[in-house]
């Protein structure tokens, strides 16, 4: 059993339209490495060039915000679901 990563609409152009992708267990950081290897255009979208989580991206491991866990070092095991959410914001000024 793998780990399911939920892909937001903004990144689906990089995943061939898939809203969910399966990867192997590891850490949140290793999941992104797997995703970036499989979908090279995703590189730089979720993580900054120096490998940190982009400030406008929130990552949930099951129901928990990874920022309040171990961030990119958060362990992800078989059957877990990881959700990537871009910040949604704006306004008239």
């Amino acid at each position: 059993m793998a780990v399911e990563v939920r892909i937001p609409t903004v990144f689906r152009k990089f995943t061939g339209g898939s809203g969910a992708v399966e990867v192997q267990p590891g850490t949140v950081g290793s999941l992104f490495e797997q995703l970036e290897t499989r979908y090279p255009d995703l590189r730089g979208q979720v993580r900054t060039p120096d490998g940190q989580l982009h400030r406008f991206v929130n990552v949930y491991v099951n129901d928990e915000d990874a920022r309040y866990l171990e961030k990119l070092e958060t362990k992800v095991t078989e059957g877990d679901t990881v959700s990537i959410l871009p910040s949604v914001a704006g306004g008239q000024a």
């Binding site: 609409t9 871009p86 704006g90």
Partner: peptide, 24 residues
């Protein structure tokens, strides 16, 4: 995604463009 502009027209502001994320 929806939001209101309380005093300006229903048109994306530079902030709306800058912070746009989801592909909807």
């Amino acid at each position: 995604v929806f939001h209101s502009h309380t005093h300006t027209e229903a048109y994306p502001s530079p902030t709306d463009v800058r912070l746009a994320s989801e592909d909807v």
